[in-house]
């Protein structure tokens, strides 16, 4: 997803990029006239820009929108979409909708949890974040995974294993 690309962007550590993101967030808030009821839109933008919502970011948003920090924290934690933890380089979501469930989504999740991390967390090497989704609406193609924002249909555990293998190979090459 776009959130992912911003986290992965090579210039994330340079001061200039940080300024850019702060500026873009400021622009989003001003577009909504710093109205408190635009909180969800602002949080969406913030997560897109920064990849996740850090405590500092939440406090900053609360201050700018003149909302109690507890309210902002409450909203950010209520919705599944927002994450307060940094994400891994790749995000793999297993759709747990009914159709995917009856067609073997649990088997896929098992592979990911065994090889990478538990659902809702990131592998120790920071490579892969594993998540579950509430039906991405591609039920005709069940079981479905969302690999870095791309929907992949009729995934078998073998294919998922192959993809994870490929990821490891690429990593070794990068390191070398």
């Amino acid at each position: 997803m776009s959130a992912q690309t911003s986290v992965n962007s090579p210039e994330r550590s340079s001061g200039q990029a940080v300024d850019q993101r702060a500026k873009m967030l400021e622009r989003a808030m001003s577009r909504h006239h710093y109205a408190g009821d635009a909180l969800l839109e602002v949080l969406h933008t913030a997560q897109e820009l920064y990849g996740y919502l850090s405590p500092g970011l939440l406090r900053e948003i609360a201050r700018k929108l003149r909302l109690p920090p507890s309210h902002v924290y409450g909203v950010a934690t209520f919705y599944h979409f927002f994450t307060l933890q940094p994400r891994g380089e790749h995000t793999v979501m297993v759709c747990m909708g009914t159709a995917c469930y009856v067609k073997g989504a649990l088997g896929l999740l098992e592979v990911l949890e065994r090889r990478c991390a538990r659902a809702g967390s990131t592998s120790p090497d920071g490579k892969v974040s594993v998540g579950t989704a509430r039906c991405v609406g591609a039920c005709g193609l069940a079981p479905v995974i969302v690999w870095d924002g791309e929907i992949l249909g009729r995934v078998t555990p073998q294919e998922l294993n192959r993809r994870l293998d490929a990821l490891a190979v690429a990593e070794v090459r990068d390191d070398g």
Binding site: R134, C135, A138
Partner: peptide, 11 residues
Amino acid sequence: DEGDPGAFMDR
């Protein structure tokens, strides 16, 4: 806000 798992009509 089509939330039912297994439904994609509105989408």
